[in-house]
């Protein structure tokens, strides 16, 4: 399916078809006729038929839409913006953050704070880093602005916790040094989800 029709936003020249909704009854007799017609026509039973068909399909054709959530999870888009991950350099295992402070600056809810210092190797070291998830609106600017791809949005969307601080510690967000092979790059804002092809359907716009 081509995307031309979606890209054409020039409404004026599009070929709309108008739906024939008929005329509203005016006189009593007309109204009576409409009622009678609708009663006999059995539209109500069509409705019954539809749901019955759905049930039969659900039960016998395995057309069930339920995802048994805590046990099964839907694949989420790589663009999904959940709790941040701080990534490491794959070669050295050192965290990527250089402490430039751009995330702190760009954060529109002012929830990122960092302390930096001059370290023994004459480099800038991030001595403390915290995100206040009570305030974070997961807008993704921090990941967008990060010049080192150090802070990214992870896939941890289950953020219920007893304490706000549960997710905000730098070490918690940092990918574990022994699981560097599992470290996921954030695909970014333009990325498509892994199951994007399955999800493509005709949307009403395409009719």
């Amino acid at each position: 399916m081509g995307l031309e029709q979606f890209k054409n936003r020039n409404v004026g020249t599009q070929n709309y078809k108008t739906l024939d909704v008929g005329v509203s009854p005016q006189t009593g007799m007309e109204r009576f006729k409409q009622v009678a017609k609708r009663t006999v026509k059995g539209e109500l039973f069509v409705g019954l038929g539809v749901v019955m068909k759905a049930m039969v399909k659900a039960l016998f054709a395995d057309d069930m839409h339920t995802v048994k959530y805590p046990f099964e999870k839907m694949p989420i888009s790589p663009r999904y913006r959940a709790i941040h991950d701080m990534l490491r350099l794959l070669e050295s295992g050192h965290y990527r953050c250089i402490g430039c402070g751009l995330c702190e600056k760009i954060c529109i809810s002012n929830c990122i704070t960092m302390d930096t210092r001059y370290d023994e190797n004459q480099r800038k070291e991030v001595s403390e880093y915290t995100i206040n998830f009570g305030r974070c609106i997961f807008c993704g600017y921090c990941a967008e602005v990060c010049p080192e791809l150090a802070i990214v949005h992870g896939q941890r969307y289950e953020t219920a916790s007893e304490q706000r601080a549960s997710f905000s510690i730098f070490e918690d967000m940092l990918s574990p040094v022994d699981q560097l092979n599992l470290q996921q790059e954030y695909q970014g804002f333009g990325a498509v989800s892994p199951n994007a092809d399955e999800n493509i359907k005709q949307t009403p716009l395409a009719y």
Binding site: G99, G101, K105, T116, R117, Y118, D119, R123
Partner: peptide, 9 residues
């Protein structure tokens, strides 16, 4: 002062 903060902060 070195590496302790950014000027914009």
């Amino acid at each position: 002062f070195q590496y302790t903060t950014n000027a914009w902060d």
